[in-house]
Write a protein that binds this DNA or RNA. Structure first.
Lengths: 215, 215
DNA sequence: TTCCTATGTGGACAGTGTACACGTCTTTTG
DNA sequence: CAAAAGACGTGTACACTGTCCACATAGGAA
């Protein structure tokens, strides 16, 4: 009798894991969810997957690569969050109202994500790597657009509906995103940290009005 | 003969360092300047100060405390950056114009800091700890105000000059800061990373107009 | 001078990312 | 169908980190 099962790390019967990459990524996502990007520890991920530390290197070039993967799925989640908010906007008949609602959907989706999935939000944006012009499918929502592109599309709707003058359309996403991203930061790490959800909602309302009006 | 100079870590003759705290802080600031908050490594700071790792614990409770100190000086630097921009605004006679200029000074100072001292900027804002209602002198500029308070004062000027309706004054700093902070982020880590300084300047201009108009 | 106390050193430990050499299984190929 | 090839995991080891503990050294107060 050949003692094949020499020392298979408890909890597994086969030498091969099956789909370790996914297991590692999920573990890493959980870690990020619980403690943000700094909590994404390669060794801990392998531990949770029931595998030796070095096994990770067969699926991710290094720690950074793992973090980038987490970031990608975080962005995809954000995109879906925004898409959900957009559903209602699309139902609105009047194009002008619908477009405006779409823009606000981006804002509210963004903020909901920042508040509801703070760890993932941090992981998504603490890594240095531009989002625009990045068509990585891993970063997209169900519509095939990443968060930045969703914002762009909302702004496009607005120009088409005549709400946003064509002359002010170019690069408008940067202005809108600045406002929303900045507020997300203030809420999770800044002075609005202690504010009540009600206050935050109210401020977000005002912020989006400012954007609409000032754009 | 008593071999007093047993093993004084080369480059120093006295057992005491003199002002190690400052030396460590300066080293840590340099590290942050070069590589952001993650580059602030306690052991490296002690190395640069020519001292053993544990010596740091006589002056900072732990690594986090050191980082907080760095963050404080970074905020103070930011405050001074803003104050410099504000000088010109104060020279303007017409109150309305002067107030508006003050608000823009906050924005441009903020962005100049983010661009010129990216590492420090990251260090200042990657740490979770609200700035408002924090009257730590270490975080203030020469005027005795921290960056957040400088923004508040600019907005106050605006209401006094009648440029910003009193009804919209409350909490207006959060909206303005959101916009400016968000753009700073976009420029150093986001899609505006690759943009030319000229383009950034132009966008900043538009952003500040948006704030003025939409506030 | 003598003791107290602030300041620095040395050694140790757990935890991290990662390189290298080596087992173990699946898949392809002659 | 056996054998070689390649994919996947393990084990050991190293450098590096933050931090604890016991000890060494001086500067000032008694």
């Amino acid at each position: 009798m050949k003692k094949t099962g020499k020392k298979l790390p408890a909890g597994r019967t086969t030498f091969r894991h099956g789909n370790l990459r996914e297991a590692l990524l999920n573990a890493a996502i959980d870690l990020a969810r619980e403690g943000g990007p700094t909590a994404v520890v390669l060794r801990e991920a392998t531990r949770r997957a029931g595998v030796s530390p070095n096994a990770a290197y067969r699926h991710f070039e290094n720690h950074e690569a793992l973090l980038h993967a987490v970031r990608a799925t975080a962005l995809a989640t954000l995109a879906r969050m925004i898409e959900i908010e957009m559903v209602q906007a699309k139902r609105i008949r009047k194009p002008a109202e619908s477009a405006r609602a779409a823009l606000r959907a981006v804002g509210t989706g963004y903020l909901k994500f920042a508040l509801g999935e703070t760890g993932l939000f941090r992981a998504a944006f603490s890594v240095r790597e531009p989002v625009a012009n990045d068509h990585d499918p891993e970063k997209q929502g169900d519509s095939g657009l990443n968060p930045f592109e969703l914002l762009s599309s909302a702004l496009d709707q607005m120009t088409q509906a005549g709400v946003l003058p064509k002359s002010r359309r170019p690069h408008a996403e940067y202005l809108a995103w600045s406002a929303v991203h900045g507020m997300a930061y203030l809420v999770i790490d800044g002075p609005l940290n202690a504010a009540s959800p009600k206050d935050v909602e109210h401020l977000a309302e005002r912020l989006l009005l400012m954007v609409e009006k000032g754009l």
